[in-house]
Amino acid sequence: MTSLEGETGDAPKRLHSAIIADQLEAEIIAGTLAGGSKLDELALTERFGVSRTPVREALHVLASRSLAERVPYRGVIVANITRERIDNLFETMSEIEATCGRLAAQRMTMSERAALEELHLSMAEMAENGRYDEYERANTDFHTAIFAGTHNEELIEVANGLRLKLAPFRKSQLRIAARMKKSNEEHTAIVTAILDSNAREAEKSLRRHLLSAAKAALSRMG
């Protein structure tokens, strides 16, 4: 049993639920938890040594990422992760991010462009030195900054929601040094286009970036 108990208060509960969600997410992506299998609350509380509250919160996170679904009379079930589903998610995200890139190139303020460039330069150092965890977190900030640069709240909400669904697949591929460096190289083209206010090139660069990410994710499925 993996025990996470020993702390009290809301913050530790949120921490527990995040740890549980991350562990179950990794097992679903790896295929250890097969599609269609039940995620039993009681069994998970015993496994992680916690109360039902953080387990329920973790299952809610998995459902929000479309890694699990609530089925009447059966409870929470692991979703089927198919190549077609991942392909469709990346295709949709590609179009959303391409649109965000085009609008960000036109609408980002000077300070927003400067912050994006600074973030990119720091990520280049992370990629060069193999700092995977830092790069992964910064990568989320990078794409979030582009979404914010559209200054379109509806589009930002859609982009962030879809990004959460894709996050588990993108996260796993950034653990590979070659993919992390390639990702950073692709970011260079994106940042250059945005700094130059080249909307068409920003759109194309982000679409290529998502295509590259999709290929990497699908190759890991065999």
Score class of each variant (00 low, 15 high):
M108F: 07
N152M: 12
A68L: 02
A21K: 06
E95V: 10
N160F: 01
S51M: 00
T2L: 13
Y135M: 09
G161F: 11
G75A: 03
T150G: 06
L162S: 02
L59S: 00
E69A: 09
F90R: 01
V55F: 07
T109W: 11
A177S: 10
S205W: 04
Q173K: 08
E203W: 06
R170C: 11
K215C: 00
D22G: 04
Y135S: 04
E157F: 11
R137N: 07
L103T: 13
G31Y: 08
E118P: 06
A79S: 14
G35Y: 05
S37D: 14
R207K: 13
S51E: 15
A213I: 01
D196E: 15
A213C: 11
G31E: 10
L164G: 11
M123F: 05
H187L: 03
L218M: 06
S183M: 09
I77T: 08
A79R: 06
D87V: 02
R131A: 09
G9Q: 08
F147E: 00
I28Y: 03
I86Y: 01
D141M: 08
L166P: 00
A21Y: 07
I86L: 15
V71S: 10
A114G: 02
L116E: 04
A30H: 11
E134Q: 08
A178R: 15
P168E: 05
A217I: 12
R74F: 00
A199W: 10
L103N: 00
K38H: 13
E112I: 14
D10S: 02
I96F: 04
S183F: 10
V158W: 02
E201D: 13
H60Y: 11
L24P: 05
E153N: 14
T188G: 09
Q173N: 12
V55S: 00
P54E: 02
N152S: 04
E27H: 07
R170F: 08
R85K: 07
R85V: 08
R163V: 04
G36P: 05
L15M: 08
Q173F: 02
R85F: 04
K38F: 01
E95M: 07
R220C: 04
A18L: 10
S219N: 09
A68W: 00
I28W: 01
K215L: 13
R14L: 14
N198G: 06
Y135N: 00
R52P: 05
G6Y: 09
T144W: 11
L24F: 10
I20Y: 07
L33A: 00
A98C: 13
P72V: 08
S212L: 06
I20T: 03
R102A: 15
S212W: 07
K171R: 13
A30N: 08
E112G: 15
M126D: 12
V76K: 01
M1P: 03
I29F: 05
D22L: 11
